[in-house]
Design a protein around this nucleic acid. Structure first.
Lengths: 235, 235
DNA sequence: CGCCCGATTGATAACGCTCAAGGCAAGTGG
DNA sequence: CCACTTGCCTTGAGCGTTATCAATCGGGCG
């Protein structure tokens, strides 16, 4: 048996969907059986091929999503920090297209998809919220396609650091300092480059005074400078 | 004024959403004002930043979606052929995140989002269909991230050709022969490489007897061989 | 017919990969 | 408590794939 703490009893309940759901609809929201589940570092919340029946919201910690080619090659396709949604990759075919692995001991809220669907038919703000969630994922992935397709190694790393920084800020964490938790290999996989290149790039950024990195602990010293990486003047 | 032929009067009506919508719900589907709109070659159906209010289904022809970086660099993020959905990139922020440009004279069905949302609250199969549509887009984009992040130039081109081939087959067109309509530059942009590399790769494939290409007209001669591109034996 | 855009092909160079060695920190067992 | 292992990170040297620059070709259209 796993922990089944109701989301309604946790401080981060608002993460399990809302944001745009009117206050007077809260009671119905509560009806959405939203239990929590811990996921230990390295453990998979779900694996590619698993049957899909719930969405998740990261309550604490962070996870990576990983997709595999048939020839065995794997690539990290996403990173989710506390407050972000997870599991949308399962909607299209009723089974997950990728795996979600915890980067540290984490906890997620479970949102049964069937119940959510039902609720979306009754509460339009709920429907709106789910649609936006999916739409955001679509746009985020398209943006990542741009990163992978058009940016140099330096630009990719810079863009990645700024993305994480912004997302941290959005969720109320520090935008300047954070613990990445991914290995250099994970970062490389996500950014379409080797772990060595990631390492070298970070070292160079550090020499230039853009960041201060101690292993996975990253301190963004000069965000504006990071934004300029790759610009004509920065050859 | 643009053409406002009702979708219900066209042979491809089933493309404008259904597939999974029960027959007895058709009348309500008809109520979804689904007009058609022609888009000439090179014309934009919508541009990044345009306000979002409709989804589209390609009725005939094909379009590319293009996303732009702030520094002006553009990348092709998708290709849509007849029967495929378009416009989901606008849901998240009520304005389109990318532009959709016709690769040839085309025609799309217009599906007003507000009406669709309303319908999805009444007809669960409709809701299901929309969710799957979005879910498919999410998975497709994740797969493209893998292509861009882990495959060599040869493998990317091969994967692209096979993808188009499969999608053509799914929509009832020939899987062996098709007119790509994109320029080499568009292909390169989509695949994260230069137009010269695309050209060279296609030439090489042709010499190997995998395909027969006459400009944008592609004939897939050996699909199994294409699938083997990049495999250990094919050095 | 001549023009122009797109495609092809070649030569060269750069960026990032591969292979390899070494370092550091945390954990494990004697 | 220290030797040893293990996993991850860093740094270096050399090479290969792919980008860049450039010339030519070809087809469609005015």
């Amino acid at each position: 048996m796993r922990s089944a703490a109701r989301c309604s009893s946790c401080a981060m309940r608002h993460l399990c969907m809302p944001q745009g759901v009117a206050a007077n609809e809260m009671p119905q929201l509560e009806a959405l059986i939203c239990s929590a589940r811990p996921v230990r570092r390295g453990e998979a919340l779900y694996r590619a091929g698993d049957s899909f029946d719930s969405l998740y919201a990261v309550r604490s910690g962070s996870l990576k999503t990983v997709m595999a080619h048939r020839d065995g090659r794997e690539q990290v396709t996403g990173l989710r920090i506390a407050g972000e949604a997870l599991g949308l990759d399962g909607i299209s075919s009723d089974q997950h297209a990728c795996s979600a692995v915890a980067l540290e001991d984490s906890s997620v809220c479970i949102i049964p998809y069937a119940a959510l669907k039902h609720l979306c038919r009754e509460i339009s703000s709920m429907q709106e919220r789910l649609h936006k969630l999916m739409g955001e994922q679509i746009v985020r992935e398209a943006a990542q396609m741009m990163v992978l397709g058009s940016l140099s190694a330096d630009e990719r790393v810079a863009a990645f650091l700024l993305d994480i920084s912004e997302r941290n800020a959005q969720r109320g964490y520090s935008s300047a300092e954070f613990n990445l938790r991914m290995t250099r290999e994970d970062m490389g996989s996500y950014l379409g480059m080797t772990l060595e290149t990631v390492s070298r790039t970070l070292s160079r950024f550090q020499k230039r005074g853009l960041i201060d990195a101690q292993g996975r602990l990253i301190h963004i010293v000069d965000p504006e400078g990071l934004r300029q990486v790759g610009a004509p003047s920065n050859a």
